[in-house]
Write a protein that binds this DNA or RNA. Structure first.
Lengths: 219, 219
DNA sequence: GTCATCATGTAAGCCGTTACATGATTGC
DNA sequence: GCAATCATGTAACGGCTTACATGATGAC
């Protein structure tokens, strides 16, 4: 799960560990309170597996700016600017490799993982890397989970006011999450219909980079 | 944290492991998906520490029904009914000891613990065992945490629609949680004022079992 | 008599945290 | 030059999950 997050962030441009952590806090589902004690070993592991590589300071022009993502490029520039001599210490900027990109796609499409709140938020953050079918599948799997959680809640008999308030608040939160998912599902369906106006939808399973995403209706 | 939950549930009457797990799913903040692999070792640990003890089948009349809590007593009866000969196997019903009750109080009042969502939900479920001051402190500590999380979120610049929808939804959720806490805090304050109408509040710090709880305004 | 469910337990291992140790950069 | 912050790393440890193994009970 950490690997997924790291590779996904690195997909927008090279970053160093400290910055990766900052973005995880700020952007991802939050509560993603990754500590250095897990982040750096994870980076080392990914480097050993050749999923990422260290960007050497005189290493420019290599990454084609085709994929866009201004923020990532800006961050890379900033870090390059901040390293004058690089006496074999200080910042270590990582870049994702082709192998890493493939690994990322595989992780993202893995259906077997237990999607708890964080896992779902993380995956949905990277939804633009998924095909329309995979997006819908992800949303509906999450929805089913939440519905089941609602079912588990049962009645609040025998609970005092404090305990009951916790359960009721939790139930409200889950209900709102389900409503949110329903909106997202509707938006996805609408976009799919727009993309293929008079076609019978058939085996378009999980194409990795089909429509340009950016539905504009995701709220 | 698991210990806290177990001891708290056992405070309402004897239970066996399977039932404890069922209640954790159903009642506690949910997502408390404790598995047997952690529950049973925890019970064994608590038993070794004399925080809980096994109820022997011909062991009745011992616990005075003073503390109330119908559901707990009913569960105990049921389990007793279900054990005819008890050939040294099947259900193991646990009861909390005085030592365990003290341990529970200590855990509940511990302020140092990192209160994430679950931890807070769990503690607030047991808020009736806390004094008015401790209750308010718990609420306000949690509120401060959420406010800080909101601050960490920052802007959503550079994010695509998918990632932005995740962040925005998370922010909404946190805002709602804060509003909920504000309601609870107001209710607690109102109740405190009702309890001590024309007194200057001074050193009433953390009395463990003062007012009979059940404020009736916690929603 | 056999199947589903209730019920208890053990073992291996992952994933991540806390605490510690250290070096580089920047502002005052 | 000193402090605060940025930045990277290691080591010990802990909690919880998964998978496995087993026994009792009740329904049909």
């Amino acid at each position: 799960m950490l690997d997924l997050a790291i590779l996904g962030l690195l997909g927008d441009g090279p970053l160093h560990g400290y910055e990766i952590r900052r973005r995880l806090r700020a952007q991802m589902g939050l509560a993603a309170n990754v500590s250095f004690g897990s982040l750096y070993p994870a980076l080392a592991r990914l480097e050993a597996a050749a999923d990422v590589e260290v960007v050497e300071p005189d290493d420019e022009a290599a990454p084609p700016p085709a994929t866009g993502s201004l923020s990532g490029e800006r961050a890379a520039m900033r870090s390059r600017r901040l390293v004058p001599g690089r006496g074999r210490r200080s910042k270590k900027v990582y870049r994702i490799t082709d192998k890493g990109a493939a690994h990322f796609a595989a992780l993202l499409n893995t259906t077997s993982n237990g999607d708890d709140q964080r896992s779902f938020g993380l995956r949905w953050s990277f939804a633009r890397h998924l095909g329309p079918d995979a997006r819908l599948a992800l949303l509906e799997r999450r929805r089913a989970q939440l519905v089941q959680q609602l079912g588990d809640a049962e009645g609040t008999d025998g609970l005092d006011d404090y305990a009951r308030s916790v359960v009721e608040h939790a139930v409200e939160g889950i209900s709102r999450d389900i409503a949110w998912l329903d909106d997202l599902i509707a938006a996805e369906r609408a976009q799919d219909r727009r993309a293929t106006p008079l076609e019978e939808a058939h085996g378009t399973a999980v194409p990795s980079e089909s429509s340009p995403a950016q539905p504009g209706a995701a709220r």
